[in-house]
Simulated scan of single mutants.
Amino acid sequence: MAIDPGIVGTEFPPTTLTLDAGRLRFFAKAIGEQNPIYTDADAAKAAGYADLPAPPTFLFSIELEDPDPFAFVAAAGIDMRFVLHGEQTFTYHSTAVAGDVLTARPRITDVYSKKGGALEFLVKETAVTRADGSPVADLRSVIVIRNPGAGK
């Protein structure tokens, strides 16, 4: 089943999250981050941050706060049994810190296929901004879908 290219441009409801210092510490420890700026507010402030900075990959987790974080996959009619998270990139504009209120705004930006349709790709880009609208980061996620019916 081919992904309908008509979904390109589809925007999904934004997700807003207030960055909690405890949650940032937990995430830093979970990924094995050793730099104290991510777990010690005094070290973060000594390094010039207003509070604990969000570890670099933390922003990916904002959309996971949504009650249905994979709605974009279902909206494309994709069977989750054939899905692989293929790529994730981050373009940073500023550093988010504990206390920031961030909003993630996802949208589908591309669909394409390879290997005669055996592999399909869904590209989702997410703009992350502060409550005042200032940009924090742009995330790009590529989902790979194996199409078991291709080539038969």
Rank of each mutant, 00 (worst) to 15 (best):
G9K: 15
G9E: 14
T10M: 15
T10C: 15
F12I: 10
F12M: 06
P13E: 08
P13M: 04
P14Q: 08
L17C: 07
T18W: 07
T18G: 11
D20P: 01
A21G: 05
A21R: 02
A21W: 01
G22S: 04
R23A: 09
L24F: 12
R25G: 04
R25C: 07
F26L: 15
F26Q: 15
K29M: 07
G32R: 09
Q34P: 02
Q34C: 07
N35A: 15
N35S: 15
P36K: 14
P36H: 13
Y38S: 09
T39N: 11
A43V: 14
A44R: 01
K45E: 05
A46G: 14
A46T: 14
A50E: 14
A50M: 05
A50N: 08
A50K: 11
D51Y: 13
L52V: 10
L52N: 07
P53H: 09
P53G: 08
P53M: 08
P53C: 11
A54Q: 06
A54V: 10
P55Y: 08
P56Q: 07
P56A: 12
T57A: 07
I62W: 05
I62K: 06
L64F: 13
L64T: 15
L64K: 08
D68S: 10
D68G: 08
P69R: 09
F72P: 01
F72H: 06
F72L: 09
V73S: 10
A75Y: 03
A75I: 04
A76H: 06
F82M: 14
V83T: 10
V83Y: 07
L84A: 13
H85E: 05
T89E: 12
F90Q: 04
T91D: 03
Y92A: 00
S94R: 00
T95F: 03
T95H: 09
T95R: 12
A96L: 04
A96H: 01
V97N: 03
L102V: 06
L102C: 07
T103L: 00
A104F: 01
P106C: 04
P106K: 02
P106Y: 01
T109K: 11
V111M: 06
Y112W: 10
Y112N: 07
Y112M: 02
K115L: 10
K115C: 09
A118Y: 03
L119P: 02
L119F: 11
L119R: 03
E120G: 11
F121K: 01
L122C: 09
V123N: 12
K124A: 08
E125H: 05
T126M: 00
T126G: 04
A127N: 12
V128S: 00
V128H: 00
T129G: 03
T129N: 04
A131M: 03
G133P: 13
P135M: 00
A137C: 13
A137H: 01
A137L: 01
S141Y: 05
V142P: 03
R146M: 15
P148F: 12
G149C: 11
A150N: 09
A150G: 09
K152I: 05
K152F: 05
K152Y: 03
